[in-house]
């Protein structure tokens, strides 16, 4: 039997998949997919501290996540370094600090996530976060597209690039945060990366791209949860979800040959 808490967990995981598909599509076009790995890793030190001092790991993760996001935004602005350069620095640093802080017995859960029944409050907060992500992406969709094509043209069309980048990074982090409990710090970013890459292979215009990414993402999470439910071991769904989305990507490679 499935408890209401577990149903909340399933629904939120699927909603997270939609947000991840959308955010991932734009991250792919912005060529900052790897930033999703960095951003999810930035959560790890916070989760570690939370386990260490016994408070809610998501709260700890959220704190370092948003501090890290602001840091990345500032670094980008001030140093003019490409996002991928930031990846190298922050990625390894936060993974190392996080792994050192997290008690050994909690490390696997912190890194790979765990399927948990959710309280109604947690569920509603998660749903609100996902809706906010979707809303912001659609609200700023045109500005994002223009800035992708040409930042200077976007600026000439009165798009405020600086603010737009911050909004996008925040929405990005919020998506990672929603996926954190379920996918873990190591894999939350993967669901932003892989379905978008699959969607890109299947689509030729922006709308198709967004829809295909979301479908690939939702299907991976749905199938992953289903398979986990039938596995005899108490397995975390995160790795299975990621493996399935990688499989989808492999299948999308067949399209060229067809």
């Amino acid at each position: 039997m499935t408890s209401p808490g577990e149903i909340y967990g399933i629904i939120l995981a699927l909603l997270f998949a939609v947000a991840a598909g959308l955010v991932g599509s734009f991250a792919l076009m912005k060529r900052m997919l790897l930033a999703s790995d960095v951003i999810s890793h930035v959560a790890l030190p916070g989760i570690g501290l939370a386990f260490l001092f016994g408070f809610n790991p998501i709260l700890g993760g959220a704190t370092t996540l948003f501090l890290g996001t602001l840091l990345i935004w500032q670094l980008q602005k001030k140093t003019g370094l490409a996002t991928d350069a930031m990846v190298g620095v922050v990625f390894a640093g936060s993974l190392a600090i996080g792994a050192a802080l997290t008690p050994q017995e909690d490390l696997v859960q912190a890194l790979f996530g765990r399927f948990q029944a959710l309280s109604l409050v947690t569920f509603l907060l998660g749903v609100a976060a996902v809706l906010l992500v979707i809303l912001v992406i659609f609200r700023f969709r045109d500005q994002l597209l223009l800035s992708l094509f040409s930042p200077e043209l976007a600026a000439a069309t009165s798009v405020r690039l600086d603010r737009l980048n911050l909004y996008f990074l925040l929405v990005f982090s919020l998506t990672v945060l929603v996926g954190l409990r379920f996918m873990g710090a190591l894999l939350a970013g993967a669901l932003i990366i892989i379905p978008a890459t699959t969607g890109r292979r299947l689509a030729s215009n922006v709308s198709h791209f967004l829809v295909s990414s979301c479908l690939a993402s939702v299907a991976a999470v749905g199938l992953g949860l289903l398979i986990t439910a039938f596995l005899p071991l108490r397995f975390s769904p995160g790795p299975i979800v990621v493996a399935i989305s990688a499989l989808f990507f492999a299948l999308s490679l067949l399209k060229e040959a067809a």
């Binding site: 076009m29 060529r31 969709r141 045109d142 500005q143 597209l145 223009l146 992708l148 094509f149 040409s150 200077e152 043209l153 069309t157 798009v159 890109r200 689509a203 030729s204 215009n205 922006v206 198709h208 791209f209």
Partner: peptide, 22 residues
């Protein structure tokens, strides 16, 4: 502009985006 060849963006997408923004 050195347009990103990988962008799945059609000319119409781009024009429509500006039209909606304005």
């Amino acid at each position: 502009i050195a347009a990103d060849l990988q962008l799945p963006l059609q000319v119409g997408d781009l024009l429509a985006a500006k039209a909606r923004l304005l």
